[in-house]
């Protein structure tokens, strides 16, 4: 089954998306998921008033698809799901949902971990935080790049 990847500029409902994913994962023994929430405080400690996610009209979707398909094959999992927000996102709102289903738990957990590390530092998104001191484009931290390097 090819992975399901959705790029959405509408609010994301992780509970509903996960319920739908569970329904389509019949016969699997494990479902792992991760939900990322837009931060309410910037790295510099200021309150975030808004977030904007820039993306490419075609290649962003392809980058998500590539990450999901690589995870599915590498960990031999069943259905895989990525939903990622784009455009304007409010602090506290879900920004990404990743899920994987498999016969046993380890493969599903690893696939989710792998997909998140790659979404953070390889998928074609550009994230800008707005705070009272201005707008700041966010780049992955050294920890994020180190997390990505674990899989190489």
């Amino acid at each position: 089954m090819s992975p399901s990847c959705i790029l959405s500029n509408e609010p994301l409902d992780p509970a509903k998306a996960l319920a739908d994913f569970t329904n389509m994962s019949e016969g699997q023994g494990a479902i792992a998921s991760f939900t990322g929430i837009a931060r309410q405080t910037s790295r510099s400690g200021h309150a975030v008033s808004g977030l904007f996610l820039d993306h490419h009209s075609q290649l962003t979707q392809e980058s998500m698809q590539h990450i999901a398909e690589t995870a599915r094959q590498r960990f031999s999992v069943g259905p895989v799901l990525i939903i990622h927000r784009c455009g304007a996102v409010q602090p506290g709102d879900p920004i990404v949902l990743v899920a994987a289903a498999s016969v046993h738990r380890r493969a599903a957990l690893d696939a989710v971990d792998f997909m998140m590390d790659h979404l953070k530092a390889e998928a074609l998104f550009w994230k800008r935080e707005e705070t009272e001191t201005g707008q700041v484009w966010i780049e992955p931290t050294e920890d994020d790049y180190a997390a990505l390097a674990r899989w190489q």
């Binding site: 996610l53 490419h56 920004i95 979404l119 530092a121 074609l124 998104f125 550009w126 484009w137 992955p140």
Partner: peptide, 10 residues
């Protein structure tokens, strides 16, 4: 040509 600075998703 399209220019992609360092990305930041998730």
């Amino acid at each position: 040509i399209e220019f992609f600075p360092p990305v930041s998703g998730g």
